[in-house]
Write a protein that binds this DNA or RNA. Structure first.
Lengths: 194, 194, 194, 194
DNA sequence: GATGAATGAGGCTTCATTCAT
DNA sequence: AATGAATGAAGCCTCATTCAT
């Protein structure tokens, strides 16, 4: 047997954590269930994290950073709002397809009181929305009345809410397809325009 | 005769419950904290409710019904989408001014996985969205691609999310005014149009 | 309306108490259920008893006294063991028919740790058993090895246990008839004889 | 490696459970009192049992099975009632000497309305009584009128009741000796005979 | 005299966290 | 390094008892 120091173990803990949070919420994701799911001892994860909260926080930070990183990069090379929004929603769609748990994990925590986004992350997101807004106003595509707050809620919050609502089957239960996301995209674009 | 039930006390329990749910989420709103906040013995609220779940559910039902009742009435006498949306957002603004906690309470529970809206309430909301959609299509104001789901998320979920974000101070901390809600209304209207 | 001072109310409390103890045991007989069953306010019975324990104790005392009184009287006028045992079991059978709850009430409490028979009552019962034993030895019918303790357990405890076992359906569920009690009587008599 | 489960601790929990049930009945045997008595944290016993009920049930099952196992074995190799009854009461006497709480524990639960013996256990006991009865009738020693119910109540219930009464000091407080149990045995034998 | 609103101690149970091995 | 046995604070709920009316 190889020594149990392999990085897979930590990765398994991450997977298990996201899975349990998605399935049962933050409160319902007990350390013991996470450890069991990861095939690891209960005490093990305290080597890496001070506690459950720190563990979940890190995963949250990473997942949202991923989106932010992508957005920053896109904003630097894009000329139009459509382009940026296209990329954003494409990314969401990709995430939904490839790692649906990650989207739902984000959603669950964005709406959990226990979670307060760390200030640095929040500032960064504000900056991204600000750049987005400037681009929209420069190109004359966006209503200048619309604040960064609305941009964030519409462009990030709304699609995630929509995806979650569909996955959870609020009104309908059929699977989400790219057509529907296109409708969401159009809807958001319209709402931003002059 | 025994002393009569002080109606204030039940009201205080309701207030305290909403407050604690808003501050700490459903899970964090412990019976003991609610009782303490309401200035009432822990066992007291079991006179009125079988348990915590029943207590919170009733308040949730009442609060959302208030909005639904109003909407049903408005839909019957209105000719245009603007009219309906105006009334809806006015109501939201009023609620935000008069009972801000009620709005945040709705928000918290709508996004708490522990909570499942009762089926009858959900069906009723679907019907309202459906009437709203029919009106929009009849008057030629609304894009027929937009589903009831989107209507609900946009017209109810979005404003509530926005109000919550503002009260909680996501990006800004200044108070919400009717101007801003007008922007939200315009934004929503645009997103629904053809 | 007549003033609510009528003795019926107390009687109703007694009935309700026995009923609830029989149905749900001492612990399960809550004051509120007793009061509800008796059609009386919860606080009312505290006029007569210091608490639940005192209330139940008194009823227990009365019920067992009834048997003791009868036995004392029978012992004074009887010449043989059969006679006494006949009377005892006849009384039991009568009680089982007329007031089955009383028998089960006795049984429930005789086996409830919360209950310690009061000393005076216990002494009196010992005296009765002692008289019974003397009679048996005088008439040469009874094995002198048999103690008062065995007499009590056999002649009082055993029939009550048997009746309870039958009513509760330990092995069989058909109703108790006087034939079966005769078997029990025969069995007890045999066990006492030389 | 984590420290191994100290097998003593589980044993201590069992002892404490029996002790508390004997002292205060099932209802009065609170988890916290059991844990305190066992010198163990309150939450600890939930590692082994889903709850209080499961804990007590298992102990009850084990204790009564011990008697049942022995009886089944004795019945297979015995020729007369005396033999079987001898063995049964010898076992009781041994139990009373070595583990007096076990006998009292059985007594308490057999008479606690909260407790319902599991059906399989009850059926097994019925079978044993049935074999016993057949043996008695075959050897012509037993009155055929006597049912399995009476056999159980007399041969198992009565000695246990007697032992309990003695330990608790109903009338006398001196210790139980084998002479007294012999009297009980004789008494039972007589009661069963033709 | 009666009522029943109100209390709060105490019961059962869960689970994040610690630490001996 | 890794385990999982053990802890105990905190949660929800019940119910005997008190007391203002």
């Amino acid at each position: 047997m190889a020594r149990n120091t392999d990085p897979t173990r930590l990765e398994k803990i991450h997977q298990a954590t996201m899975h349990m949070v998605v399935q049962n919420g933050y409160g319902g994701a007990s350390i013991s269930s996470i450890a069991r799911q990861a095939g690891v001892a209960e005490g093990y994860l305290y080597r890496f994290y001070k506690g459950k909260s720190e563990l979940v926080n890190e995963l949250f930070y990473k997942a949202l950073s991923e989106v932010a990183n992508h957005m920053e990069e896109v904003l630097q090379r894009s000329q139009t709002l459509e382009e940026v929004l296209d990329e954003l929603l494409d990314q969401m769609l990709r995430l939904t397809r490839d790692t649906p748990e990650k989207i739902m994990f984000l959603y669950k925590l964005m709406h959990d009181h226990t979670f307060r986004m760390e200030d640095t992350l929040r500032d960064r997101i504000f900056q991204i929305c600000n750049s987005f807004r400037k681009l929209g106003i420069e190109t004359g595509q966006m209503d200048p009345m619309i604040s960064e707050e609305n941009i964030y809620l519409l462009c990030v919050g709304y699609p995630i809410t929509f995806i979650n609502s569909r996955i959870k089957g609020l009104f309908y239960t059929h699977k989400l397809d790219s057509n529907e996301l296109s409708t969401v995209k159009a809807l958001i674009l319209k709402s931003l325009k002059k």
